[in-house]
Design a protein around this nucleic acid. Structure first.
Lengths: 237, 237
DNA sequence: GCAATGGCAAGAGCGGTGCTCTCGTTTGTG
DNA sequence: CACAAACGAGAGCACCGCTCTTGCCATTGC
């Protein structure tokens, strides 16, 4: 993947591929994912539409490349925010940093967020390549909560009348176990992390898609309030 | 709106309008909102595409009609579920009934949910007509929580380090006050209801858009677990 | 009872889309 | 140097939203 392109043609190919992706990202921001037009992208880079097919075999392939790139960018942003907290034992600060990085990226790239988490593009089915980059964000959240758990934090107990859901979250538990984050995560902790992740995404989604306009004065402040309450529900102090 | 159509022409118009909407709903379910093609709908009802413009001035107008219809349908379903609980004091049962009605409708109409809550359709801006039907669902949730509050329930207290967000949720508070649901709802209760609504939507959205596949074995059971924990966070017993 | 009005379906046409194919040209390599 | 692969351009196919014109026919006014 990282060997230096020797020939002039290979270098031109790499440059043009990047240029196409960049132009597509720009179009994504203005027009939204569903309206991403391969012809418009081609015009933006000064190509004829058929020439783009030399670089991406189909519109779906271009979408896949964009999705992977965006997942990685978002994941990297959240990882960086967590890593930037000097005191690794200050899990509350790490949680908030990760949460805020998530929203910051989303607000800066609304079209891309729609591509990643919005309505699936009609004919498009996400290939396998996209699932691993997709997990980067939630992996950071899990890691922070796991550190908090090791330091004694505990999620809210399940309600008394709630049915047992031990094996319900087994896939998630195995996911974190396989990555060596927590060997045997408690059910209630896994549950609350998943809920928190859902709430964070829902909050950002509501803001960007305009479902928060009549409810809250300042979306940024609201998001912060949500993130803090989620931390409390996870036992993070 | 409800006067009987006298002339044969007016009746035919009403019938065809309904037929177009029904066909559009069917297309929505199979193709998704962004790919809703006016020409395809026209074919389905045995019309030529230009004839549809006699009934809807544009594709956006058709979308708006669909959105209003779907919001109303979803809102009615949730209202019905709440109203069907015989013991009005059993707020826990009412909460779960409303939550499950929400998911049931969403699972039965994934395309429509994408239209309502997914990525906004590129060139489309939702007109004023859609905002009131959009609030029906959340109004039910608020009403249930308000009844629970009157019976003594209280939301989780805010975390100690959380900034004051009293006026942040003022628009939401005024919304419920204006409708006579609760005169002066406590900030933390409003906050938790908004969070719960966000989480419910996020959970359904994650399930329908495929972001839950590797985390949870049974989406229905998972949704139930989430709804119960949200109830607990709201102090509903 | 008849003619004018106006609602209506149909068709052609505009510019846009994803995608395929062909045709010269350019580039790297045996 | 020659051959093959890579490439850009263009034409063309079927589809899209939307507009305009044409002609039919029910409703309405005289």
């Amino acid at each position: 993947m990282a060997d230096a392109p020797r020939s002039a043609r290979a270098l031109a190919r790499e440059t043009l591929t990047r240029e196409i992706l960049t132009a597509a990202r720009a179009r994504l921001a203005t027009d939204g994912p569903a309206a991403l037009s391969l012809r418009a992208v081609a015009r933006d880079v000064g190509m004829v539409s058929s020439a783009v097919y030399r670089y991406f075999p189909s519109r779906d392939a271009l979408l896949t490349a964009l999705i992977v790139e965006c997942y990685d960018e978002l994941g990297a942003a959240v990882e960086r925010a967590d890593a930037a907290v000097p005191d690794r034992d200050d899990v509350a600060a790490r949680w908030l940093a990760a949460c805020h990085a998530l929203r910051a990226w989303a607000v800066a790239h609304p079209g891309e967020l729609g591509l990643l988490y919005g309505t699936p593009v009609p004919g498009y089915a996400a290939p396998r390549d996209t699932v691993d980059p997709a997990t980067r964000v939630v992996r950071v959240l899990v890691a922070v909560v796991a550190d908090a758990h090791r330091a004694g934090a505990d999620a809210r107990p399940a309600p008394d009348d709630a049915p047992d859901i031990g094996e319900l979250v087994d896939p998630a538990r195995q996911f974190v176990a396989a990555r060596g984050i927590v060997a045997d995560a408690p059910t209630e902790l896994v549950t609350r992390v998943l809920m928190a992740w859902t709430t964070l995404f829902g909050t950002v989604s509501f803001e960007l898609f305009g479902h928060l306009v009549g409810s809250v004065t300042d979306p940024a402040q609201w998001y912060d309030a949500v993130a803090r309450r989620l931390a409390a529900d996870l036992g993070i102090r």
